[in-house]
Amino acid sequence: MAGFPPLFQSYALSCKLQVEAVKSGKTTLPSSKIIFPSTILPLVNSGLLTRGPGVFGPTWIELPKDPAQRSNRLREYSDSTDLSQVCGGPDVFNYLLNEIVDNIYQHSEFTRAMVLAKRFNEEKFTELAFLDDGLTIPKVLQKHGRHLNQARALQAAASGTSTKGPERGYGLSTSIRLVREGFKGDFLLVSGGAALSANREKTEEYVLDGSLALEGTLVALRIPFMKKVERFYEYIS
């Protein structure tokens, strides 16, 4: 059987560490490995990692519940990470950041939500991760009368199905297209008991049992360094 994409393995590592932490009573990060945002945020959400200045480089931000604070918080974070120059330029970077965060506010009814973006200079890519502890995508669809199995629910959301009508749903689907085709990068969506992984080579869905399932939603993007994305407006149309 073919291996799993590195981005999904990074998420699965967080699950493995959580299981080990429960057994041993402490969280031990592998010292020889780079730790990616898609590993860090689930550990933060589960309470196994707390804010440690400088430990992981730029720290994550907690999205405020008060909508009035979020624009400034996101913009401060965007400015502080200075990642737009390797993430297609400010318009492209802000598009990915804001469209995915907007989905969190529109649908998840979260108690806690976080964003972490980090560049990996030797590997020449940036990873962005977004995690909320709110309603999973399957539950959001069920709430609006769409009863799909978990994997199908993720695929529907990724293809632009929205509970808010046919003119909606472009945020996630265009973001996936932008990552996959514009950057030739990797996209991962984990929500409840399912995950969806997409890049140019393959698209896979995973049915997740037990400790691999997530009570919430994780969106993770791994995008190769790129100063500008040609055809940006075509990808998001």
């Binding site: 393995q9 699965a12 632009g160 297209r177 896979e204 997740l208």
Partner: peptide, 27 residues
């Protein structure tokens, strides 16, 4: 302009479905 002239929504290729029942299988 993008909003006023939307294209057909992008659809991912049909995915392969895999069931994962233990974490170690991922590695």
């Amino acid at each position: 302009h993008v909003v006023l002239h939307p294209s057909k929504k992008f659809e991912l290729p049909k995915p392969t479905v895999r069931r994962i029942d233990r974490i170690d299988a991922v590695f």
